[in-house]
Each structure stands twice: as C-alpha cells, then as structure tokens.
Write a protein that binds this DNA or RNA. Structure first.
Lengths: 214, 214
DNA sequence: GTCTATAGCAGGATAGAC
DNA sequence: GTCTATCCTGCTATAGAC
C-alpha cells in the first residue's frame, strides 16, 4: 500500500464518516462520498470492495479508536484522583463523554453513528458492542462494585450503570431537544452544567422530594 | 372521501409507519409500502401527494395521537393516586412509557421514529417538539415544582426532568444494548424491574456511595 | 379511486484505458 | 492506483385508461 493510496483511502473514510453520521447509510451515495473526497467514483470499490464494507470500515477505523480514546481519557482522569468514590466515577464519566478528548464534531458524529446502530443494528453493531461497549461496562462495573450497597446484585449494578449512561448518551445525542427545552446552546459553560447535573443526579436523584411513594 | 378510500389510506399509513420506523425514510421505497399495503404504486401520490408528505402524515396521524395516549395514561395514573410525590411522578412516568397503553410493537415504532428525528431532524421534528414534547415538559415541570428544593431554578428543574426522561427513553430505544448487557429479554417481569430501577434511581441515584467527591 | 405503463433520473458496481 | 465510460437496476412521480 503506497503513501498516496493511504491518503485517498483516509480521505474517503473521513468524508464517509461525516456523511453516514449526518444523513444515514441509505441517504448517502457513493458518488457523494467520492466527490467530497475529491477522488473517483471507482475508488470506493477499489479500496473497500463495496459501499457496505466501507461503512463497516468507518466503524473499525474511526469509531472504535475514538471510543477507545474516550475510555482512555476516563481511565486517566480517574487515576489522577486521590480518592475513588461514586461521585468521582460519575464525574469522570460525564466529563469524558461530554467534554473529553474529542472535538465537538467528532462527538456529534460518534453519537449519531452509534444511535443509528442502536435503532437499526447492522454488522457494525457487533463490533460496537463486543469490542467497545461490553468491555467498558465490565470495567465500570468492577470500578463501581466496591461502592455499591451490600445487597445489590450484578443486575442491579448493571442497571445503575445503564442509568448513568443513559444520561450521558441522551445529553449528547438529543442536543436539539435539550437546547429547545432549556433554551441553552451547547457551549463550554452549558457542558459544565450538564456534567454537574449528571453527577448530582447520579448521586442523589431528584433530591428534595419525599422518599415514600403513595 | 369514501369509506374504501379511507381504508386504503389507513393501510398505507400503517405500513408506512412500520417500514419508516424499522428501516428509515431513505431505505424505504414507495413500492415497498404500496406492496405491503396491497394497493397500487400510484396510491401514495394520490392520497398524500408524495413520499415526503406521507412521512409527515405518519407523524401527524399516528405518532402524535399515540404520544397523546401515553400522556393521558400518565395523567390518569397520577390522578388515581392518593398522595402526589416525586416517586409517584417517577413511577407514573416510567410505567406510562415502558408499559402504558401501547402495544410492544407500537412502543418500539414510536421510539424508533422519534430517535430518527432526534439524530436528523426533518419537518416532523417541529411537530414532535412543539405539539408533544414541549407541552408535556411544561406539564411535568408544573407537577414536580412543588416537590423540588427551594433553591432549584427553572433550568435545574428542566435538567432533572430531562435526566429522568433520558432513562425512560434509553430503556426503550436501546433495548438491544440493555438486553446484551443485562442478559434479559424485554418481558413483563423485566419491564417491572426497569420501572423500579427508574424510580429508585430518580429518587436516590446510585445510592450507597460516598456523598463527597475527591 | 384505482390501475397499468412509462418517463426520467440516480443509484451501485465494473470493465478496461492509462 | 486512478480514471472514464457504461451497464443495469431501482427509484419517484405522473399520464391516462378504466
């Protein structure tokens, strides 16, 4: 594989990722991708075989590595703290995903691509769950386990992690709704506010309400 | 509009909804829809003008009314309780969305369609936010306001509601991940478990962890 | 109101020159 | 490895018979 070859290949991957994330697999044509990548129509078939394989490669070569960077950031962020606690984990998690090492565009693409796979799983879903989600969940479970109440089983722990996760995911992918409802843009200040919210809610829930149901 | 006309129209709407939800707008052809609805290719143009208008009509005639049914269920469920409390609201909310008046298929379609609009808003997004989401959020805010701590501003309240909502939405649309991680199917027992989880997490967060960060 | 037939165009993929 | 040219299929939309 020559140098120039890689450059074309990389350009295709970049443009394909952006277009697939924004518009979805079926709405994007190979022509659109190759035009954006300033190369020939045939280049996709030459480098990736076909459109479907290009899509999968976007996950392998772009999505998975970026997810790993976020997880690495989370790990280091946790390691740098003196005291490990539930709130430290919640904060590191929220920061890694909402601020973290990715650019705003990367973050948006990342959650668009993942959400599309959640609504309608394809081959890429396997990659995404088995290579990224499942190991990360396992890691989170091991980290949080010591801080959980005695009686809490593995399922309870898993559901707690999923609950935290749901906020992190939602505040990323449903930006357009969150902005509408709160009237705020996703600037640095608002992201800080969201991290704070996730940590606070993860620790105390709504807080202040009665603790007994009707 | 004759009786038979309505029947064809309704059949098209039903099939279109299912197909758009499962496969997304661009992946579905008018041919697929009309074949599934056992009518002619031209029927979509006759009844709805074009494909895009059919898509919008799916939201107007199917999605919005169903969302209203869920909200109505929530309202009645709350009204039937003796004591209004934070946990009562959380429970009514989780039950309305995870169990509620919709069939399992309806629920799945509903969240697929909404999530697609969140990732990539079209005209339908306006309908969805202004006619359904925003009024419901306002209602929830009014209901919860009396139970919130004194100092909590409108933004804090909005974020709390969004946090609860994120769990409800996530446990609906990310079934495939939730099932993978927990190893459980979405049967009646698991849905009860999820309602319990949402209520518990909404009230106490993770619980049991230290309350002080590092 | 429902159908068939077709216009008119865009899609993925490949063959073969360079 | 990159290009042009092209095949073939499938799409939306409409015209016009019934």
């Amino acid at each position: 594989m020559s140098k120039k070859d890689q450059i074309t290949r990389e350009r295709i991957l970049n443009e394909a990722e952006a277009l697939f994330a924004t518009n979805g697999y079926d709405a994007v044509s190979v022509r659109e991708i190759t035009t954006a990548a300033r190369c020939n129509l045939a280049a996709v078939n030459y480098h990736f075989g076909n459109k479907q394989k290009l899509y999968l490669e976007v996950f392998r070569a772009r999505w998975v590595p970026r997810a790993r960077r976020v997880q690495e950031y989370f790990r280091e962020s946790l390691a740098s703290r003196d005291i490990l606690s539930t709130s430290a984990v919640a904060q590191a998690l929220a920061e890694a995903f909402l601020k973290g090492p990715l650019s705003d565009d990367e973050r948006q693409r990342q959650s668009q691509l993942m959400t599309r796979e959640l609504i309608q799983p394809t081959e890429a879903f396997e990659l995404l769950t088995e290579e990224v989600l499942r190991p990360f969940f396992k890691e989170l479970a091991d980290t949080l386990r010591p801080f959980m109440p005695e009686g809490l089983g593995n399922e309870g722990l898993a559901l707690n992690i999923l609950s935290m996760f749901s906020m992190v995911i939602y505040f990323n992918f449903a930006r357009v709704v969150v902005s509408r409802i709160t009237g705020r843009d996703y600037d640095a200040a608002f992201k800080d506010r969201l991290v704070e919210q996730i940590v606070e809610f993860s620790l105390n829930g709504l807080g202040g309400g009665e603790r007994e149901g009707a």
